[in-house]
Nucleic acid binder design. Structure first.
Length: 401
RNA sequence: GGGGGAAUACUCAAGCGGUCAACGAGGGCAGACUGUAAAUCUGCUGGCUUAGCCUUCAGAGGUUCGAAUCCUCUUUCCCCCA
């Protein structure tokens, strides 16, 4: 590794229109790899996405639509571009697409040149296949590891790339590639896998109750994206900042030190959230999302709330339960319980809402309200919205039309 | 095929004729504290027009002034014998 420039590749199958932060671990390995002077190669799995990787899947998957794969491929490519340097003459990152060599590959040639070197016995020993022996696996998905193995061989021969990086679920596929290179070329190649990141509470990293945290702002709003990083526990933040930031070792140690001295400032989380949100969404959007967080979680923010634009308001609250009601209701005062249970189904029962109100859990426009509160049109933000909160983090929006 | 046991709220799990909307634990939600943490403490956790009322303890009937509790049948599950 320390001698000269090496190449390493990571493969991404365009099975979704966006990457999520769980995909980022191998990307960051490549980033660090490049920062050490080596050359990263990003393999887009235009061909492999058409096959379907059985790794980690307990059942056969439906084939993806070919047009969809193309669309996905382009948007994932765009997302990846922000993580690496493509301009360097010396070790600039490079994209390849395995469709380029697979679509001209003749099946007969493939069987003679590639298939002959890997035994079915060997292929069957992989977890991805073994786990499917009971439930069944199609020949198509079974072949996947051979195609990925061939990718590795192809890049070894054409790009002098002897290292493949991936998530730990890719171990089997990668070692098949190493095996193939050894058989065909009598040369050594290397696998580097990163464990699936888990949080200290044992749950999967990069998931919220609503699902994956996506890089695509249409799937996960920048505000939520920022919030995800801000809410990482201290313990996890230490791990994450090493992994996901490109800060120097000294820098990280000094942030950690300040964090320990003044833990309530949450230096680690803030720094991490800033790095990630800026890199994925850009600085401008980061600042807007940050402003939103301050408004929603800061103190004395009722006035501030009134100042944010409708556009930002909608961005911060993208994805929160929202109900639309008629303006006619505001001809007179509205009973709070009537509004939140009957006019809108925001709460499942009046009893529940009553309990919440009695325990001081409900806020309207950032101010606690009681069971006697009546709503008037003066409570409307931008003459259009009512912002309710259940506790600290759970929002409900009522929009007037 | 014969015999025995079980089915209770989101989950586990008490209850064995009235004091049961049903102990307790976990989970969940909220409050206090705090850092939009963790830990801790507190409250809530069937519905309603809430000193009360209504609907719930696998399902359907029955006994009784009164049933989650007793009886009958049905369904499902577990165990033992063949």
């Amino acid at each position: 590794m320390s001698s000269g420039i090496n190449s390493a590749y990571v493969g991404f199958d365009p099975t979704a229109s966006s990457l999520h932060i769980g995909n980022l671990a191998p990307v960051m390995l490549l980033t660090h790899f490049q920062n050490c002077g080596h050359k990263p190669i990003l393999l887009l799995g235009g061909a492999t996405a058409m096959i379907g990787d059985p790794s980690g899947k307990s059942t056969e998957r439906k084939l993806l639509d070919i047009d969809e794969i193309q669309t996905n491929l382009l948007s994932i490519k765009k997302q990846l571009e922000t993580f690496l340097d493509f301009d360097s003459k010396v070790n600039g990152a490079e994209f390849v697409n395995n469709l380029d060599w697979m679509q001209t590959m003749n099946f007969n040639v493939f069987l003679r040149e590639i298939g002959k070197h890997i035994t079915v016995n060997y292929m069957l020993s992989k977890d991805s296949v073994k786990n499917r022996m009971e439930t069944g696996i199609s020949f198509t998905e079974f072949s996947y590891q051979l195609i990925q193995a061939y990718d590795f061989l192809h890049l070894y021969k054409n790009k002098n790339c002897a290292i493949q990086i991936g998530g730990s679920d890719q171990w089997g596929n990668i070692t098949s590639g190493i095996e193939l290179i050894r058989k065909k070329e009598s040369m050594e190649s290397f696998a580097l896998t990163c464990p699936l990141l888990t949080k200290s509470d044992g749950s999967k990293f990069g998931k919220t109750e609503e699902g994956n945290v996506w890089l695509d702002p249409d799937k996960t709003s920048p505000y939520k994206f920022l919030q995800y990083w801000l809410n990482i526990s201290d313990e996890d933040a230490k791990k994450c900042i090493r992994f996901f930031s490109v800060l120097s070792k000294e820098n990280i140690l000094s942030i950690e030190k300040s964090h320990e001295e003044t833990p309530h400032l949450r230096m680690l989380q803030n720094e991490l959230a800033k790095e990630m949100t800026c890199r994925v969404h850009g600085k401008k959007i980061y600042l807007r999302a940050l402003e939103g967080s301050k408004i929603l979680f800061g103190k004395n923010t009722k006035e501030k709330l009134a100042t944010i634009s409708e556009k930002d308001f909608l961005m911060f609250f993208e994805g929160v339960p929202s109900y639309t009601i008629s303006r006619n209701y505001f001809n007179k005062e509205i009973d709070i319980i009537h509004l939140l249970t009957e006019i809108t189904p925001a709460f499942e029962s009046k009893g529940e809402l009553r309990r919440m109100l009695q325990s001081n859990a409900i806020s309207l426009n950032k101010e606690k309200i009681s069971i006697e509160t009546n709503i008037t049109k003066n409570d409307l933000i931008s003459e259009k919205y009512l912002l309710f909160q259940k506790g600290k983090k759970s929002y409900i929006i009522i929009q007037v039309e």
